[in-house]
Amino acid sequence: MNKKNKSSEEIRDWRDMSFDVLMRIFMALNLVDFAAVSMVCSSWRDVCRDPSFWIANTLDLSKWKHPPTPTLSSKIVSLLSSLLNLSNGQAHCLIFQFQIYIDNRDFFKIAQRSPNLKRLVLPGWFPDFTKKGIDLALEQWKGLESLTITNTYIATLFLEAIGKYCPNFSELKLTCHLTLNIATTLAKHVPKLKVLSVQSVRVNKNALVHVVKKLKQLEILNVTHSFIVTGNRPDNTEIYPQHSIPTLLKNMPRQPTTLMYCNGFCDRCQDVFIGNMMHKWRDPKEQIWCEDEIPSLQI
């Protein structure tokens, strides 16, 4: 067998590594490391700036396990802003850290830098968000399709703004309680909602009925492990077990195509039940925030 010339093997440079390979490697990095690789050389920076990278990649701050101190939060926010600059407005999915602190100004800055955002997962805490701040941000996010909200008060503000600015909005996860107020806001401002998850939270029975009745395009409704009640205090309320949910919605003119609930009284149902009976109704829990039976709403 004739041997080919050995010299055909040239020394290759990591700067010339194929785009696909670099993209796959960079996707495995957290945001700080990603910021670092974007400054290594011009060809790596080009990969980090490529729109296809940002369509496939999620800006996920939730993997951050540092304690949430105000200074660290501001560092993360400034890192996020610089990464969004790098994305050139192409970022599609943004997941905040559950305990990050973020104010109106930063929120608007982030919105300005991500006009193509489709999915947004909000943090658990909003100490001083205003109606105007939310309105200004949503005006930037006209293509928003999916949102996870953690707070009853801001939920209504967000839903009003979504009704105004986001025609393609279709998917909502609430990790706060589904109150009658939210249900009516939802029906009024986002009547075309297709997917709604209110798993493991307190759900007002009338709010549930209202949502099913009024959201005429609702396809998937997830109420798994939720605590269905009529009143808002444990001592004056009627409690509906999970398995009775289909009966509750039986007489509706139309049903969601997929209704998710728990057939028994599982450990999670029990946790939710006890948490609610103990008046721990205001804590949005990180686990509920991360998990969902609907895959597109998971973190």
């Binding site: 440079d13 990591w14 490391d33 670092a36 400054m39 290594v40 050389c41 011009s42 790596w44």
Partner: peptide
């Protein structure tokens, strides 16, 4: 190999010249 490294450490590990 990139995790937790500074920009210049990554350049060193991957033998990349700074071309900025």
């Amino acid at each position: 190999l990139m995790k937790g490294m500074t920009v210049s450490q990554i350049r060193k590990i991957f033998h990349i010249k700074n071309d900025f």
